[in-house]
């Protein structure tokens, strides 16, 4: 058996899931953040996160597999975090849907405005809403103060 075949045989893998979703082709290093932003740590279900998996297309990638009811599915957050990732929705052990991800026009309570002058910094119960203002450059701005996400 060659070295490459051995590597393939013993590579880290996680078994198939019966119901849930698989997020594949996540940019390497973004998996853990996505796990947190999707609120998966709060769910009472099995989650496998593989980071730095080898990928022919990407070199390295992250993968998340979640065994959970498929109605608990937040495409918007995944699209915002990494719209080049792929998603398989699985039911009864079969892939039933491969929704296409895109940058959402608005994102609610996924990220917070860090501008200390923004009304979101003091107003109670106010949702943090960001609006996609430049799809080409993937720029999101706070709905209230218009500060660019990541600028503060």
């Amino acid at each position: 058996m060659s070295g490459n075949e051995n590597r393939e045989k013993y590579k880290l893998n996680v078994g198939k899931i019966y119901e849930g979703f698989v997020i594949d082709h996540i940019h390497a290093g973004r998996g853990m953040k996505l796990y947190k932003d999707l609120g998966l740590e709060k769910l009472d279900c099995s989650v496998a996160i593989i980071t730095n998996a080898s990928s022919k297309k990407m070199g390295k990638k992250d993968i998340i597999k979640v065994e959970c009811p498929i109605d608990r599915f937040d495409l918007e957050t995944i699209g915002f975090m990494d719209h080049t990732a792929t998603v398989d929705v699985i039911k009864d052990g079969e892939i039933i849907n491969k929704p296409k991800l895109s940058l959402p026009k608005t994102v609610k309570n996924i990220i917070k405005c860090k501008n200390p002058r923004c009304i979101t910094s003091i107003e109670q119960g106010l949702d943090h809403i960001f609006v996609l203002t430049d799809p080409e450059k993937e720029v999101y701005r706070c709905k209230y103060c218009e500060t660019k996400y990541g600028e503060q």
């Binding site: 923004c118 009304i119 107003e123 109670q124 119960g125 106010l126 706070c142 218009e146």
Partner: peptide
């Protein structure tokens, strides 16, 4: 008191409001 609550109250008294606030986006709220 929040901006949201203040304007809800003022809506009971006045016909129109002009608001200045130091926080950006406060008028939208």
């Amino acid at each position: 008191e929040s901006v949201a609550d203040t304007i809800r109250i003022i809506s009971c008294f006045a016909d129109i409001a002009a608001m200045r606030h130091p926080k950006e986006g406060s008028a939208t709220v």
